[in-house]
């Protein structure tokens, strides 16, 4: 075989091996949670009011969904507008872009526990929100902001300049070009960032424990302490008394993420078309 063919085969095989490994591991994790959790999914786990007997996850499910929506409401528009500014309005490679990009990267690197710390001392204590849904979601918004900004940037940059030029040639102003032509084409990429952000929000525990507290109750107002599903799972597994229920919570977590992912995909497709 020629050298080219050998290196080709090696690369191709590596790709299959690594991809196979990824698929194997990911399937294994999902199946593992399902096998260990589904047998313990009893109706008592879904009662509306949480008691220490039923350790119901229903309030946590509602809290999680509300937390996700609230956080996305704060962070996604902010992130997209920032991305738009960085890509459409500033000369590529200018200092401003560098500064903001560095700021975003740094924010992305700060561990969730530090956000929890910051959220505790700033939102909870200094601004007096005490353990609340609001404090938790504001903290999480800052946390996912860099992710949204970065992926919006990438997505916008991948829209060919031809689209923009075409729009300008047809007489559209910058604003219209961005919102009607460029943004919709970039939607799938932005959607990818939103998915990762949702994943991050739902998976967050350390930051929420210090800002939203751990009370399992339905969120009646923004200032209620809430316990999201992940925190619920952590608390349940924390004292070895409810490991089975923790796995059941894990199953529900997977279903919630799957549901949110599917909805987002559907939405993104709609925007891209329309």
């Amino acid at each position: 075989m020629s050298r080219t063919k050998i290196s080709d085969t090696i690369l191709a095989s590596l790709t299959w091996i690594f991809a196979g490994f990824t698929i194997f591991v990911l399937m294994f994790i999902i199946l593992y949670i399902l096998v260990n959790g589904v047998p313990h999914l009893t109706p008592t786990l879904f009662e509306i009011r949480y008691t220490t007997d039923n350790v119901s996850m229903f309030p946590s499910i509602v809290s999680t969904i509300v937390m996700v929506f609230l956080t996305l409401t704060f962070a996604v528009p902010l992130g997209i507008f920032t991305g738009i500014y960085l890509v459409e309005y500033v000369k590529r490679g200018s200092k401003v872009v560098m500064v903001i990009r560095t700021a975003a990267n740094l924010l992305a690197g700060i561990p969730s526990i530090v956000y929890g710390l910051f959220g505790l001392l700033f939102f909870v204590v200094f601004l007096g929100m005490s353990f609340s849904l609001l404090a938790g979601s504001l903290t999480l918004s800052i946390m996912i902001l860099p992710l949204v900004i970065r992926t919006t940037e990438e997505a916008l940059q991948s829209v060919p300049d031809g689209y923009r030029e075409g729009a300008f040639a047809l007489g559209a102003g910058k604003l219209r070009a961005v919102f009607r032509i460029v943004l919709p084409s970039a939607m799938p990429g932005i959607f990818a960032g939103v998915i990762l952000a949702i994943g991050r929000i739902i998976g967050e525990s350390a930051a929420l424990i210090f800002t939203a507290g751990t009370i399992a109750q339905l969120p009646e107002s923004l200032s209620n302490s809430v316990r999201t599903l992940t925190v619920h799972m952590w608390v349940l597994s924390g004292e070895a008394l409810h490991t089975n229920e923790a796995y059941a919570t894990g199953v529900v977590l997977l279903l919630v993420v799957f549901f949110i992912n599917t909805v987002s995909a559907f939405l993104a497709k709609k925007i891209a078309k329309g």
């Binding site: 698929i23 199946l31 096998v35």
Partner: peptide, 20 residues
């Protein structure tokens, strides 16, 4: 791919029957 998936399921089955 099929082997990988089957392997994953079998292993999970073993892991599951051993309890968490």
């Amino acid at each position: 791919i099929v082997t990988a998936l089957t392997g994953a399921m079998l292993l999970t089955g073993c892991g599951g029957s051993n309890s968490q």
